[in-house]
Design a binder for these strands. Structure first.
Lengths: 246, 246
DNA sequence: TGTATTTGTAACAATTTCGTCACATTGAGT
DNA sequence: ACTCAATGTGACGAAATTGTTACAAATACA
């Protein structure tokens, strides 16, 4: 379990479901409680530690998706902790948000760049913290493909979110769009319903396999007018396939 | 408020036409003064810092629209500063122009290689600096430029803060104006609410995503009489888009 | 200061999309 | 032709997304 698995998201839409393992390094129990409770509420899984040493230990155990570090810590400071994390190949790329005191208090902070990905000054609202977390995770998440995909006379452009067939724009729902995007980027190959669910809906979704059939049907209906419906074939006993060979 | 649109477009004529926030990193006070004065004159809002550390601190609060970095700085060099900025996901996309005394071609290459968008050698004329700034902004952040934007029968002029449609001026609030400006400089592309918030409101503002919807609605209402309201489309599950196509 | 405008948010309504089911149809093997 | 499993199809309620409105706080202006 060495991978820093970023929150589950699929590559065919911008939505990122952020349910992350977040390591919180905070020595004040009250604040630790407050933050961890809210992290949980936001759907994350907080890992708690009250000093830098403990944090390093926890990190050794499992690599979190994000680390929240208080500036003021007993013993090793937050800065030093970050420096160590950045020095280690394994932890180098884990995004870090630093919790600092008011800007006017930390004069000695001037000129120091700890290498955190973002900062948030106390006191902060929970909503603001959530917003920062979301932003950092989103920036760190794998880039979605924005390349146009062309297949026969079909053109799908993620950046404009349009599907064009012979100059005619198709109107697709979000799921059908993702489904078509997936097939167009993986043509000529058969995918089982399970594979399609994993790739298009996302890992570990609990959905009836037959639901795929329904969406295939809807996609076919949308493609009907373009004549491309027949290219989305059923492979009995195996799954579905998009092929250029009618 | 759905009130009759009274002609009040002069309300904003006092505003500076082009308010780009430009972070200047320059240790020599004389040059710092000179440049900042001229930036102000050109309508920008300079943020001053005399070394790399201070610059990083300023960036921490709010992202500027552009950064001017002197090559020679006390302590951390300009190159190193740029490297750090480019290393952080949050600051990665801020355009940077490097200032240097050296005319050495190798240095120029090193500068561009480190991630600067442009490079200008001292001594330089104010005119040249302004030209470079404008060019970089036009390329990287067209919505902060003062250039007139034309889209279909809509004309938006940032310098006069006016939007004209078929010879008729529209009355837009500041936010709707910026929103429209953004869409007109980035047509056809779909932007999520989050992206719109980042681009139009700013990166560290934390505002409900749904607020975007409300402003979209207000903008649509303002565009209603021009027939352009239907060009500002909703893309379900993805965001909004300004399109010329139906 | 008082007034008007703008802005962000919440609450509610309207709309679209999703997942599932029941039932119809197909196809392969016997 | 028959059987049976796999797939197609239409419908429906639930869930998710977006539209709309009202309102209070913030802001600008006179």
């Amino acid at each position: 379990m060495e991978m820093a698995n970023l929150p589950t998201q699929n590559l065919y839409s911008m939505e990122a479901n952020l349910a992350a393992n977040i390591l919180l390094v905070e020595d004040e129990p009250a604040i630790q409680d407050l933050i961890s409770m809210n992290l949980r509420q936001a759907g994350h899984s907080p890992i708690l530690s009250s000093d830098a040493g403990e944090a390093l230990e926890k990190v050794r155990d499992t690599l979190p998706d994000l680390i929240l570090v208080d500036w003021m810590l007993p013993g090793m400071s937050g800065i030093e902790l970050i420096r160590r994390l950045r020095n280690n190949d394994r932890t180098r790329n884990v995004p870090i948000i630093m919790l600092t005191a008011r800007a006017d208090e930390n004069d000695k902070l001037a000129g120091l760049d700890s290498g955190a990905d973002d900062y948030i000054t106390k006191p902060f609202s929970i909503r603001e913290l959530n917003a920062r977390i979301k932003a950092v995770l989103r920036r760190r998440a794998p880039q979605i493909t924005e390349d146009k995909v062309v297949f026969k006379h079909l053109t799908l452009d993620p950046s404009t979110h349009r599907v064009n067939a012979n100059g005619q724009d198709l109107n697709l729902g979000p799921t059908e769009f993702k489904l078509l995007h997936f097939f167009m980027t993986h043509p000529e190959r058969v995918y089982s319903r399970t594979q399609i669910l994993d790739q298009v809906w996302g890992d570990h979704v609990f959905i009836e396999e037959r639901t795929v059939d329904v969406h295939i049907r809807r996609l076919r209906a949308a493609l009907e007018s373009t004549g491309a419906a027949s290219l989305l074939q059923t492979v009995r006993g195996a799954g579905y396939r998009l092929t250029a060979i009618a």
